[in-house]
């Protein structure tokens, strides 16, 4: 699988994503500089990593979406290329309009950095196909603006279309207000576009994909993409 990792000024999980894809998952991986417009035809996957692109000024992801590389990614996505946005990358994809909804400040008003559990709402996508049903993943979150918002009508549309990919839950996979760390509507932790080739998630799978760190739950998302390519 040929992967590209986007680097914005302020990206800080770019090297983690690169390390996991190139050295742990053994895939061909390249950097994609935000100022470049690149023909992505030969790529299988583009990852928008976490961080604080453009200092999160105005709103998280609001400035990054006007970077030249976004034009290339939009074309790539329109042609069916797979795009994964993690944390700040998710915020950028929402600001671009490649994914529906928005992310607002956590309900607690605090930056939350901890391990959470997510269940797979749709195991039938190229991002989740290797997860299996009823699987609960333990993945860390680290964000201040991670509360997913979409109006109730659009949320039920997402649910009907199978666009909700992950929800926050407890260790046994129960979704409740107690297991929702940030106040996201419907406990949504990750969503996809209608075609399911673009997915954004707040939890950081790249932070739990190296066997050195014992928890490798995040690997399954990258593994699914590899199996699918």
């Amino acid at each position: 699988m040929k992967c590209g990792i986007v680097v914005f000024p302020g990206s800080n999980c770019d090297h983690d994503c690169y390390h996991i894809l190139k050295h742990v998952m053994d895939q061909e991986t390249h950097w994609l500089w935000h100022k470049d417009e690149v023909n992505l035809e030969s790529f299988d996957l583009v990852v928008l990593p976490g961080g604080f692109s453009y200092g999160d000024y105005l709103r998280a992801g609001a400035i990054a979406r006007f970077s030249p590389i976004i034009n290339s990614i939009t074309r790539f996505a329109e042609e069916g290329g797979k795009v994964l946005g993690i944390c700040n990358g998710f915020q950028v994809l929402l600001e671009c309009g490649l994914l529906p909804g928005a992310l607002i400040q956590n309900q607690s008003r605090k930056f939350i950095c901890k391990n959470v559990f997510v269940c797979i709402d749709n195991p039938d996508t190229s991002f989740t196909q290797d997860c299996g049903e009823n699987r609960v993943l333990e993945i860390p979150i680290a964000h201040h603006q991670g509360s997913y918002y979409i109006d109730p009508l659009s949320l039920s549309e997402l649910e009907e279309n199978g666009q909700v990919i992950f929800r926050y839950c407890d260790t046994s996979g129960n979704v409740s207000a107690e297991s929702n760390p940030n106040g996201s509507v419907g406990s949504v932790a990750g969503v996809a576009n209608k075609q399911k080739n673009v997915m954004g998630m707040m939890p950081h799978p790249e932070r739990c994909a190296d066997p050195l760190l014992s928890n490798t739950d995040g690997q399954i998302i990258f593994q699914s993409l590899i199996s699918n390519s």
């Binding site: 400040q105 309900q107 607690s108 008003r109 509360s147 918002y149 109006d151």
Partner: peptide, 8 residues
């Protein structure tokens, strides 16, 4: 907008 949670 109306209906969006404003924790601050």
């Amino acid at each position: 907008k109306e209906g969006v949670l404003d924790p601050q």
